[in-house]
């Protein structure tokens, strides 16, 4: 039997930053109903739905960890960089040859800032992950950040009530920014995960960025938020 060939990261290196507001060329479905997920998952049935989305999944470490932990849940990573998303795709193809347990995870090269409602219907997602987002330090680039007041409305739209958003950053300023935006947003509240929350326990140790931070003895900050019903009342 021939050994499965895993993709080598050195062949897929790409600059860490991408302008999320410019017009890249993407393939995306016009509506969630016409999205063909069977291209991504070999066993996907029409009654199945993707429930987890890793926004900016990078090299896919989190999905590789979550896939066997949630064997019945379909999960997708969104990554804007061509080579990096291609790496994750090749990685899952290789993993599946060794172990079919990885059938439920896949990656799409897309811009999460622009196309979330094209992929997911309202309230479809149970979990979203925003781990080690591009910090975009300069004030003029703050509108490029993946967490902003305008985008939180879209995240709240695709998440079901009770659904969770997991955020991690190794940049305190960015962590504070995310906490401030999520807690000020009426459709989210800060959430303290119970011991049973398996996903919360693997956030830092499973991603490539997280491992790098651990290697360099740096610090990562985690915050989890829950989608709540709209508190708005007509007076």
């Amino acid at each position: 039997m021939t050994k499965v060939k895993y993709p080598q990261k050195r062949n897929y290196r790409q600059r860490a930053h991408s302008n999320p507001l410019s017009d890249h060329s993407f393939e995306y479905p016009l509506t969630p109903e016409v999205m063909d997920w069977t291209k991504l998952y070999p066993r996907f049935k029409p009654e199945n739905e993707v429930k987890f989305c890793d926004i900016g999944c990078g090299y896919g470490g989190l999905l590789v960890t979550l896939s066997p932990m949630f064997p019945d849940t379909y999960m997708v990573g969104f990554e804007i960089r061509v080579k990096v998303s291609d790496y994750v795709n090749d990685r899952f193809l290789a993993l599946r040859q060794d172990n079919e347990v990885y059938h439920n995870a896949g990656v799409i090269r897309t811009n999460a800032m622009k196309y979330l409602p094209n992929f997911f219907r309202k309230g479809q997602l149970e979990k979203m992950f925003i781990l080690y987002p591009d910090p975009h330090f300069k004030k003029c680039k703050h509108k490029w950040r993946i967490v902003s007041e305008g985008l939180l409305a879209e995240y709240a739209y695709v998440l079901k009530v009770g659904g969770l958003v997991y955020t991690v950053s190794d940049v305190k300023e960015v962590h504070d920014w995310m906490v401030e935006h999520f807690t000020n947003f009426p459709l989210f509240e800060r959430y303290d995960p119970s011991a049973e929350d398996k996903a919360a326990q693997v956030l830092i140790g499973s991603t490539e960025e997280g491992k790098k931070v651990l290697r360099n003895k740096g610090q990562s900050w985690t915050a989890i938020f829950r989608r709540v019903e709209d508190p708005y009342q007509v007076n």
Partner: peptide, 9 residues
């Protein structure tokens, strides 16, 4: 902040 829906077409 509460999106009702999208019209995609």
């Amino acid at each position: 902040y509460n999106i009702h829906s999208y019209l995609l077409g």
